[in-house]
Design a protein around this nucleic acid. Structure first.
Lengths: 187, 187
DNA sequence: TTGTAATTTCTGTTTTTACAGAAATAACGA
DNA sequence: TCGTTATTTCTGTAAAAACAGAAATTACAA
């Protein structure tokens, strides 16, 4: 973990930024991006790029690129400050909303292209009489699963935040309820 | 003993391995790991490390480490071949099972440590009277969400495969059924 | 316009990660 | 035991990603 420039921020915030930055690496984004996100998430007012640069001690250019990426994920947004021509940014602070945006981003970046590539593979495999039937079967199974998973994901993301939260709180209890509600509707 | 392995693998399989390997990078694993997984997923019989090395043209040591990682994800397993003292490997071929294993692995590697770190941050923040109440609130909101998300994830993974598949097929229709079954819940 | 502040893009450096090949270790048969 | 083969660990190198600082561009005020 890299250190952060001298400052008088509370330790907990410092920790959070460092940790979140580190965590970012595990997920798809780099440290700078994640640190800036953490900083803005806890900030009580919008910040401009210069402030972020100083606060985190990273290069201005780096901040610029990272902000662009965060905006593309819709995790932060530009907010105009009257009388100040510099661009200011603030983070989405609703965690559920945040999670959904991340999920949406990952779907687009990971799942969708996977589904497309698989489709091509299967198409090619089907026109190849040299291919082992078992391998073909597996390719198809994978494709079906990814396509279906993609649809499910999309549906989940279309559910209003509040209902999704309810659904999550219910956890595995949905199963029981579905049995009750759906009853005889097997298949 | 060095006849050149005729590499007239069907194009589709070749593609799949290359693509899957590439995709692995987006997810948490490197190319070699993902390629080996793809190869074993389509293989009709268990393979040993040497075969994999030749087939993919990567270093033996690399194969060894990658296999270890795949085993740790439980995406492949060692299978003894009688009369052959070399270790052979085969992949889990049930895609749903595979997805659940990956989900489980990611939870352990990403979500759980995040929850723990957040807990520390919040604890520290609570004992700091210098901290902005809004920032504290956000830290707490994040922690609650992550902990809850973690529980939900765990519950989902405890659901039998078949039921989970049903649940996925239902998609957002669960919402409607839940309203019917459980009545509405006023916030 | 022209000057200045803000931002982005470009280029080279540093850091990190993936990987190959060698060396070491372990497993097993004789 | 020893010799052979399979496997892992170690070490250096290559490739990729993150990043800083400079240069270029853009936006705007006067």
């Amino acid at each position: 973990m890299t250190e952060i420039k001298e400052n008088n921020m509370p330790q907990a915030i410092e920790q959070f930024i460092l940790y979140w930055g580190d965590m970012g690496g595990q997920w798809g984004v780099n440290r700078s991006v994640a640190q800036i996100h953490a900083l803005l998430y806890l900030a009580t007012k919008p910040m401009n790029a210069e402030e972020i640069t100083e606060r985190l001690g990273i290069a201005r250019s780096n901040v610029s690129n990272s902000l662009k990426e965060l905006v593309s994920w819709k995790l932060i947004r530009r907010v105009p400050i009257s009388g100040d021509r510099r661009e200011h940014f603030e983070a989405e602070t609703d965690v559920m909303e945040m999670a959904m945006r991340i999920a949406q981003g990952r779907k687009e970046r990971e799942i969708d292209p996977a589904a497309m590539a698989l489709k091509e593979c299967v198409a090619q495999a089907q026109g190849d009489n040299k291919i082992d039937p078992i391998a073909l079967e597996r390719l198809q199974a994978m494709e079906v699963f990814v396509v279906q998973g993609s649809k499910w994901y999309e549906q989940m993301l279309s559910i209003p935040k509040g209902q999704l939260a309810t659904l999550m709180k219910m956890g595995d209890k949905v199963i029981g309820l579905l049995k009750f509600a759906g009853g005889k509707k097997a298949k």
